[in-house]
Design a protein around this nucleic acid. Structure first.
Length: 408
DNA sequence: TCTGGGGTCCTAGGACCC
DNA sequence: TCTGGGGTCCTAGGACCC
């Protein structure tokens, strides 16, 4: 294990593998004659309140960006074809890419569904002196050949450098920054290009007259700390120099699971909201059990008609895993939130966190009973339902109280 | 043209304990 | 008796990412 960690000598060799317009690529592979034949392809929500998840390069020339409301995208690019996100296929393709990367690198960390950090430190001898740029290009070709997915790779001694370099590598290319050139490389960019700087921080930076990485690099750390707080000040001072102590961490540990839905129309009816909470609790519970986890904390999120987002959470001494127990907590939290501000809801979400591993049945009390707690019988029933759904499809068994009415 | 759904991390205040 | 200091957990909100 220690062999694969950062060696005491030599700079780190970090690569970021980033799938090019991932959702569009997958949509094209899944439907080569339909969506695949469309140059102006948009993937995302098609409902009245949807947004674009990913746009083809051709469509981007018209100003379409991910996160943009679909309605707006249609105005900018009227010829565009919009297809829904092929969720299952994306998860499968992502897994396939990761599996190939695991054969090619000792350390692989998934940063998102379409981004993977690799740490190849310590592989110099094994790779017989192959340069990091050559390694990156080899990985790009192998991934393409074995998964059909086009990827771009950025590389360097630091994660932030690898990440920013990916921007220059796209599409379907490679850009590696040699050791020692990190600060100079970073100085070519604007602050808005740095990962971790969003609209809010950007506004604060602009107030101090800072627009480019060069601007910020000229300011002493004491001033950055005074302006933006000690934590953010030190963070910024490091990043603009291409310094990023974050390690590539291959341990996959999920911190939270959630499911949320924006309604076709705002909902004010309490019973209807409760039915939605029941469905969302089921989605979360199923994922929780599939991963053999339990949750100590249940959270409900509500977005009011005016887009104000509120949430309430509750932590139990013991973890829960059944739909019933999750729903019991979530329903109470929903009542609290609705009591504090009673207004039509645009979105509802259920999340779980504080995740712990399931423990064997013989270590549990077999006498659960109170509402928020679950008995071993509850758990056995819930897992049996999951097995039936796995075999016959998710529609095979549905909560009796949920109306069979899809959103769109 | 109003703003999806899945996440992670950080902060700040209060409770509680030693 | 006029009350420190630190650690941990919980909660709510916010920023940010893809």
């Amino acid at each position: 294990m220690s062999e694969t960690g950062t060696p005491s000598q030599g700079p780190r060799r970090i690569l970021l593998v980033d799938c090019d317009m991932f959702f569009v690529q997958v949509a094209r592979l899944e439907d080569p004659d339909g969506a695949g034949s469309q140059p102006f392809l948009l993937v995302g929500g098609r409902s009245n309140r949807g947004v674009i998840t990913s746009a083809s390069y051709e469509a981007r020339k018209f100003g379409v960006r991910s996160g943009m409301p679909t309605r707006q995208a249609r105005v900018l690019c009227p010829e565009a074809v919009v297809v829904p996100v092929p969720r299952g296929a994306c998860v499968e393709r992502s897994r396939a890419v990761r599996a190939v990367l695991k054969e090619l690198s000792p350390v692989v960390q998934s940063a998102s569904i379409d981004e993977f950090y690799l740490d190849l430190s310590g592989t110099e001898r094994m790779l017989k002196g192959e340069g990091l740029d050559e390694t990156a290009d080899r990985i790009r070709r192998v991934v393409r050949q074995r998964t059909e997915i086009a990827v771009s790779l950025g590389g360097g001694t630091q994660r932030v450098v690898a990440k920013v370099a990916t921007r220059l590598a796209k599409p379907d290319g490679v850009h590696v920054v040699p050791p020692g050139e990190e600060a100079e490389f970073m100085s070519r960019f604007r602050l808005r290009d740095l990962p971790g700087i969003g609209p809010a921080f950007l506004g604060q930076l602009k107030e101090k007259g800072l627009r480019t990485v060069e601007d910020a690099a000229a300011v002493e750390v004491e001033w950055l700390a005074r302006w933006f707080g000690p934590g953010r000040g030190a963070w910024l001072w490091e990043r603009v120099r291409g310094i990023d102590p974050t390690e590539v961490d291959a341990r996959e540990s999920r911190k939270s699971i959630s499911s949320e839905r924006t309604f076709f129309e705002d909902i004010d009816d309490h019973d209807e909201l409760e039915r939605r909470i029941l469905e969302l609790s089921g989605n979360v519970g199923r994922q929780l059990r599939a991963k053999e986890l339990r949750a100590r904390t249940v959270t409900v999120k509500i977005r009011d008609h005016d887009y104000k987002t509120r949430q309430a959470g509750s932590t139990q001494p013991d973890g829960v895993e059944t739909d019933r127990a999750i729903f019991a907590v979530a329903a109470t939290l929903l009542h609290d939130l609705r009591h504090r501000r009673r207004t039509p809801a645009r979105l509802l979400g259920v999340g779980v966190s504080n995740l712990v591993r399931q423990v064997p049945a013989d270590q549990l009390d077999l006498f659960g009973g109170q509402d928020a707690r679950e008995s071993e019988r509850d758990r056995i029933v819930a897992r049996a339902v999951d097995r039936i759904r796995d075999r016959y499809g998710s529609e095979a068994l549905r909560p009796a109280r949920v109306l069979d009415r899809p959103d769109r």
